[in-house]
């Protein structure tokens, strides 16, 4: 695996001179921190600690944290426990399907360094090699208090704008993709178009594209065009006519 050789640049947000816009940004950040929909990807024992955190003993809903069902609806991806190589593919797909801003929390030692699966051939050891992890909650397993403490920490970081792992994923996509390709092989691809998304939302950085994304484009199976055609008419001979 290559070492990190891409300089981590400071986040350069657009300078918003309009004071109202700054107030608005502040409001949105505040609401983001007070309303966190989480998708929990529960592979291991860490999942056991989540129900008490959600139910009457600790009641996460006090902080505006709610469980959600699909990646589209969620803001936080909660990875509780070890990630095998097979499941990591699904985790990455799930992460890429979430709407930004999105945050990844790694719970338990397994996500930090592989934990008790350190010697396993089939387990990804360090989650942050593949996804931008905003927060680790270490422990084997961390108690609900620790989970809540971590959530509060994340809330503060979102509020202050420090939790920007999702921007890092767009900016240094090539690096993340390289690590993913290293693990899954050269033909690794997801249906989500991260580069297109990054350029659409002005989130691309110098590390968005590189040798690994070029490899991706070489190996990628092209998807059928999806845009709407408003053109009326066209040729009479169309596909599908033959098997009528």
């Amino acid at each position: 695996m290559k070492e990190i050789d891409i300089p981590i640049e400071a986040s350069v947000d657009r300078n918003r001179t309009n004071p109202l816009a700054r107030v608005f940004d502040e409001l949105v950040r505040f609401c983001r921190s007070r309303s966190m929909f989480m998708l929990h990807y529960c592979t291991g024992c860490g999942a056991i600690e989540l129900p008490p955190a959600m139910t009457s003993r600790f009641d996460m809903e006090r902080l505006g944290i709610q469980p959600m069902v699909t990646p589209r609806q969620a803001d936080i991806l909660l990875i509780t426990g070890y990630v095998s190589i097979k499941t990591l593919k699904r985790v990455i797909l799930t992460y890429e399907q979430m709407g930004s801003p999105k945050y990844v929390i790694g719970i338990c030692s397994c996500t930090v360094n592989g934990g008790m699966y350190w010697q396993s051939y089939a387990t990804a050891k360090q989650l942050d090699q593949y996804l931008p992890v905003d927060l680790y909650i270490a422990g084997c397993m961390p108690r609900p208090e620790a989970v809540l403490e971590g959530m509060r920490k994340l809330m503060d970081r979102i509020r202050s704008g420090e939790a920007d792992g999702w921007k890092d994923y767009y900016r240094r996509y090539d690096w993340y993709l390289g690590n993913q390709q290293h693990l899954f092989g050269d033909d690794w691809q997801t249906p989500a178009d991260v580069i297109g998304e990054a350029s659409h939302y002005d989130l691309a950085g110098p590390g968005t594209e590189g040798e690994h994304t070029r490899l991706l484009q070489q190996c990628q199976k092209p998807l059928e065009p999806q845009q709407t055609f408003f053109q009326i008419g066209g040729s009479l001979e169309v596909k599908g006519e033959s098997h009528e």
Partner: peptide, 20 residues
Amino acid sequence: GRTRQVHQLDNYAGGHFLTA
């Protein structure tokens, strides 16, 4: 915010990879 259209195969399938 600004919308962006995704491909129909970029779709929730419980983590499954959809193909045509």
